[in-house]
Simulated scan of single mutants.
Amino acid sequence: MLWSCKFPLASLRFLYISALGDGMRHAALPLLASSTLDSAIGISGITVATTLPWLLFSLPIGVYVDRYSKINLMIMADIFRGVAAMIAVILFCIDHANITVLVFLAFSISVGSVLFECASESFIPFVMRSARPMAASQRQRQ
């Protein structure tokens, strides 16, 4: 087990941090693509690479989420997305970034996002076994 929490409600704080990172990715990746690339086809390829993992991996990842620890899967997904983003930053700093790097970055971060989102959606009812699981789920979506 990677991480355990004595008070499960306190563990919901990292969901907000990950959501902030997702929002930054949604804003930064298209801006980076438009400043780096000159073709609209390349930017469209990045958009396809961002949405394709939801189509390809959502069902198999849902099976893994049901079988394994949700909190550990969320942590591994965030670590995976962070490592992918760091590799991309390093490649941009040494001027080896191109359309292939951006498409691979968009695809790999989106695979991590699929894993994190599937695990976080099923994590709320698991933690909130009390009388108000709907209120916790609504609070997470705000």
Rank of each mutant, 00 (worst) to 15 (best):
G82H: 08
S108R: 01
D22C: 04
A136P: 10
I46E: 08
T36H: 13
F57Y: 06
C93N: 09
L32Y: 12
R13T: 11
A84M: 14
F14L: 08
M86V: 13
L37S: 07
G23T: 04
V114W: 04
R141P: 00
S108A: 13
C118N: 12
P125Y: 02
F126D: 13
L32Q: 08
F104A: 15
V83T: 13
V48E: 06
L91G: 04
A10S: 14
A106W: 07
L56H: 05
S39G: 12
A28M: 11
A49N: 05
S58M: 09
K6E: 12
V83A: 14
A97M: 14
S69T: 11
L55W: 11
S69L: 08
S11H: 07
F80H: 07
L115Y: 01
L73G: 09
E121K: 13
W54N: 06
A88C: 12
A135N: 08
L52T: 11
I41T: 14
R67H: 12
S110H: 09
A131K: 14
F92N: 06
N72C: 02
I75Q: 05
L2E: 04
P8M: 02
T100Y: 15
I46L: 14
S58A: 15
A119V: 04
L105D: 03
T50V: 02
M86L: 15
A85P: 00
S122C: 09
A40T: 06
I94M: 10
M86W: 06
Y16E: 03
L12P: 07
L12Q: 08
E117D: 15
S35W: 05
L9C: 00
G21N: 03
A40D: 11
I61H: 03
S18T: 11
F116I: 10
R129Y: 00
I71L: 15
S69D: 15
V63P: 00
T50S: 13
S11P: 02
F104T: 15
S113T: 13
V114K: 04
I87N: 03
V89L: 15
S130R: 12
L9F: 08
S58C: 07
L91Y: 04
P8W: 05
T36K: 12
S39Q: 05
S4T: 13
M1I: 10
Y68C: 09
S130T: 10
C118P: 00
